[in-house]
Amino acid sequence: MNRTMLLALALIATAPAFAQQQAARPAGAQGGPDATFAAWDKDGNGTLSKDEFRAGWMATRDDLALRRLHTEFARHDADKSGKLEAAEYANLALVQRAGKSAPMMTAFDKNKDGGLQFAEYIDFIKVAGAQQQPPRAAAPKAK
């Protein structure tokens, strides 16, 4: 598959993230595919190398994942306090699946304010999500 086709697929796949970005931009601000291409074209030569494409794709993917996590965080913040308190923490799917083996919220409450801000929530997701991943099967040994 050539680079032009890959770029087109990347832009199509990331369209929802760019739509959100566009909605948040002030009137008259530039954006869209040309701005994305320019941002990914780190050396400014008008073409995307494989490394530039990979870095742009990964950054876009990570940004989209972070946005989704923030949406989920906001959904669980029932009282809209900007943090998840103990009862809200207990309602998280990762906590409910883990049951009694779920990590205590206090382990992630770095500022000790009785709740998890978004950055603390991300730390929790990294740890609890990794704990609930099934172990990977060992690759068969070559003879």
Rank of each mutant, 00 (worst) to 15 (best):
K110L: 08
S81Q: 13
Q21I: 08
T71M: 08
W40F: 10
P16A: 01
R68C: 02
Q96F: 00
A87Y: 10
S49I: 04
P103Y: 00
K42T: 11
D41H: 04
R67I: 00
G115T: 03
G44M: 04
A10P: 08
S101P: 03
F53D: 06
L84W: 10
D109I: 03
D41S: 03
G99L: 05
D34V: 06
L9C: 13
D43C: 07
F124V: 03
D41V: 01
D123M: 04
T60G: 10
A65T: 14
G82A: 03
A102N: 11
G56I: 00
A39V: 06
T71K: 13
Q20W: 08
D79R: 13
K50S: 06
K112D: 05
H76C: 12
Q22G: 08
K112S: 07
K83M: 13
E88W: 06
L9E: 11
A17T: 08
D51R: 11
K100T: 14
S49G: 09
E72H: 15
F18R: 13
K83W: 11
N91R: 15
A38S: 09
G32V: 05
A59Y: 08
D123N: 11
I12T: 15
A74F: 00
T60K: 06
G31N: 07
A78M: 08
R67M: 02
L92M: 13
G56A: 04
A15M: 10
G56Y: 05
A29S: 15
E72K: 12
G56E: 05
Q22H: 11
I12M: 09
A87G: 08
K42L: 11
N45K: 12
T106G: 06
D62W: 01
L69I: 06
A55L: 08
A29F: 12
T36V: 14
W40E: 00
F108L: 04
G115L: 01
R54V: 07
D123Y: 04
D109R: 02
A35F: 12
G82P: 14
